[in-house]
Design a protein around this nucleic acid. Structure first.
Length: 92
DNA sequence: CAAACTATTCAGC
DNA sequence: GCTGAATAGTTTG
């Protein structure tokens, strides 16, 4: 586990539901502005992919990157999280 | 420590 | 829009 990885995880975990963030964004938040590739490398080598919502991390603001379950699944997951967010925001 | 790899991004055509 | 090059960190030897 590297210090930079920790930062990356923290940032990724800080991403709200239904929201997507880019590798560049995460890298910048982690302290390494231009380390977008390092972020991807870490996420793919991350020890606990389950606790890391890597599906919220994408290439660009509209283009999904790679994912263990498949990039196509990301879109579905994001849509699902979107509903969860509505459920949480909904006073009910 | 150095080399190779990568789930990326930018520039050029 | 696609191809090629560059950057930055992780992992392996």
């Amino acid at each position: 586990m590297t210090p930079f990885a920790k930062k990356v995880y923290r940032v990724v975990l800080s991403i709200p539901l239904g929201q997507t963030r880019t590798y560049k964004w995460v890298a910048q938040k982690a302290g390494r502005k231009g380390a977008y590739r390092a972020v991807g490398t870490i996420l793919k080598n991350n020890p606990f992919p389950v606790i890391i919502p890597c599906h919220r991390v994408i290439k660009s603001s509209n283009i999904l990157g790679g994912y263990v379950f498949g990039k196509e699944s990301k879109s579905e997951i994001l849509d699902l999280e979107r509903r969860i967010k509505e459920c949480l925001t909904s006073k009910k």
